[in-house]
Amino acid sequence: MNEKISNTRKIRDFILKSLVWLSAVIICLLLLGMLCFILIKGLPHISLKLLTTKPSLLNDTAGILPNLLNTLYIIMITLLIVLPLGVGSAVYLNEYAKNKKAVQLIELATETLAGIPSIIYGLVGMLIFVQFCSLGTSLLAGAFTLVIMTLPTIIRTTQESLKTVPDSYREGSLGLGAGKWYMIRTAVLPSAIDGIVTGCILSVGRIVGESAALLFTAGMANEILNPVQAVSKGGAGSTLTVSMYMYAKERGDFDTAFAIAAILLILTLLLNISAKFTAKLLKRGDKQ
C-alpha cells in the first residue's frame, strides 16, 4: 500500500506525524522538567523547623506553620458553606426544577461564575465581604469569596453524578411511600456520593492553589491563629500560595518560596490522585 503513495505525501505525512509526537514530548518534558526543578530546589529546604514555626524577623527565620493552618481553616470554612449550597443547587436542577428556562438561566450563571478570573473575585470579595459586610481583612472574608468561586465546581460534579442515578431508584423509593425529600436523602444522594466527593477534592485543589482572590480578602499576615480567631472578624492570615508569592516577590527569599512550591506540588499531586481513585472506589462500592 505505502509504496503507491507519492513522495510528497509521504514527506508531509512524516512531518505532521513528527510534529504531533514532538508536541506531546514537549509538553511531557515541560511538566517533568518543572516538577523535577521545583522538587530539587524545594525539598532540601523543607525542615521540621520550617513546618512548625512562625516567621521571625528578629531571628531572621522563615516558618510556614501559620500559613499551613490558614490554608486548612479556609478549606474547612469554605467547604462547610459551599457543600450544602452546591449540592442543594444540583439537587434542585436535577430533581425539582421543571421550568426549562429556569434551568438554563442557572446553568448560564454557573458557567459565568466558572469563567470569572480570580482577581475579579478578589476585588469583589473585598468590596462585598471586607467593606460592605465589614468583616475586615479576614479568613472569613477570604472563605466567603472562595465559596462563590468553588460553587460551580460542586454544582457541576454533583449534577453529573445525579444524572447517572437510575430513575428506578427514585420510582422505587416513591412507590414505597417515601416523600420527595426522604427519597432524595436516602436513595438519590447516597448513590451520587462519588460526584460530591470528587467535587470536594477538586474544590480543595482550587482553594489550595488560589492566590489572587485571597490577596485582598484574607490578607498577608503570618500570625498563628487558633480556630476561634480564625472564624472571627479581623482574623487575617495568608495561605500557602499567598505567602509563597510574598516570599518570592516581596522578600526575595527563594529558598522558602521553593520549599512552599514543593509542598504545593505534592499536595496537588495527592489531590489529583485521590480525585481519580475516590471516584473509581465509590463507584465500585455502589455496584456491590
Binding site: 442543594g88 439537587v91 434542585y92 430533581e95 425539582y96 469583589v124 462563590i148 420527595k180
Partner: peptide, 28 residues
Amino acid sequence: IFEKIMRVLFSVCGFIAVGFVIVITIFL
C-alpha cells in the same frame, strides 16, 4: 409542610448562583 419547606430551600440553593452573578455585576 416539610416537603414544601425543603422545596423552597432547594430552590433558594438553585438560584443562588444567579444571585451571585447579579451581585458581582452590581458591585463592579
